[in-house]
C-alpha cells in the first residue's frame, strides 16, 4: 500500500514537473521566441491535411518519403534537389509521355541580370531549365527573349508572376535560404554598393 501511495506521489511529482517546464517555456523570455517550429515534411497522404483519410483512394497513394528515400536532398520545397537527382541518375523523367528514349535539347546559356539593389546579380541558367522544360513554356508567354525587355521584381515573383509562375509553387521557393541560388554573381567592382562602404571607415 505504501509503495502504491509512493508511486502515485512520484507520478504527481513528475507531472507537476512537466507543467512547471511548460510554464517556463511559456514565460516571456524564451529562446527563439518568434521562431515557429518547422512543419513536418513529406507526411503520408492520410496525414497531410489535404487528403481525406476516409477516402479509400488516399490509402492507395504512395507516401512521399518512400519515393524520396534515394533522391538528392535539399533544404526547401519537397526537400529534394530535383535537378541534382537527375544528374545523379536517381530519377530519369521522360521527356515524351510515350517515348522513354526521347531526350530534351539542352541550351547552355546563362543570362546575367544586373540588379539595382545591393543583392548579387542574378544568373539565369538555361541549361537546367531546358533539362525540364520546353522553350514554349516560358517564351514568349512569360518572358520575351530579348535583353532588357522583361520587367521583373521580387514582389512580382512573390505574387506568382515571371519566375514565380513555378518558383514558390512547384520549383524551389523564394526563401532566405534560396536567395543565392539565383542571386549568384557578386557585383562588379565599382557598382552601386561596395563592400568597403559597409565595413569600417
Amino acid at each position: 500500500m505504501i509503495m502504491y501511495k509512493l508511486s502515485i506521489l512520484m507520478l504527481i511529482a513528475s507531472i507537476s514537473g512537466v507543467f512547471s517546464l511548460v510554464a517556463s517555456a511559456e514565460s516571456s523570455n524564451t529562446f527563439n521566441r518568434m521562431l515557429k517550429p518547422q512543419a513536418p515534411a513529406n507526411l503520408p497522404p492520410a496525414e497531410d491535411g489535404i487528403h481525406d483519410p476516409e477516402s479509400p483512394g488516399t490509402h492507395m497513394l504512395q507516401p512521399p518519403k518512400e519515393a524520396f528515400s534515394g533522391l538528392v536532398k535539399a533544404k526547401w520545397g519537397n526537400k529534394v534537389d530535383w535537378v541534382k537527382s537527375i544528374h545523379a541518375k536517381k530519377i530519369a523523367p521522360r521527356h515524351n509521355a510515350s517515348d522513354a528514349t526521347s531526350k530534351p535539347i539542352i541550351m547552355n546559356l546563362d543570362i546575367i541580370r544586373e540588379v539595382r539593389g545591393s543583392m548579387p546579380d542574378v544568373v539565369f541558367p538555361h541549361d537546367r531549365h531546358t533539362l525540364l522544360l520546353a522553350c514554349s513554356n516560358c517564351h514568349t508567354g512569360i518572358f520575351i527573349p530579348q535583353k532588357g525587355a522583361n520587367q521583373m521584381s521580387m514582389a512580382a515573383i512573390m505574387l506568382g508572376e515571371s519566375c514565380g509562375k513555378c518558383h514558390g509553387a512547384v520549383a524551389f521557393p523564394v526563401a532566405t535560404s534560396t536567395c543565392k541560388l539565383c542571386h549568384a554573381k557578386p557585383k562588379a567592382k565599382g557598382s552601386v554598393l561596395k563592400r568597403s562602404v559597409m565595413s569600417k571607415p
Binding site: 523523367p93 521522360r94 515524351n96 509521355a97 533539362l131 525540364l132 522544360l133 520546353a134 513554356n137 513555378c166
Partner: peptide
C-alpha cells in the same frame, strides 16, 4: 517520371 514540358507544353 516526367519532365515539366510533357504536361505543360
Amino acid at each position: 517520371r516526367f519532365n515539366c514540358s510533357v504536361c505543360h507544353a
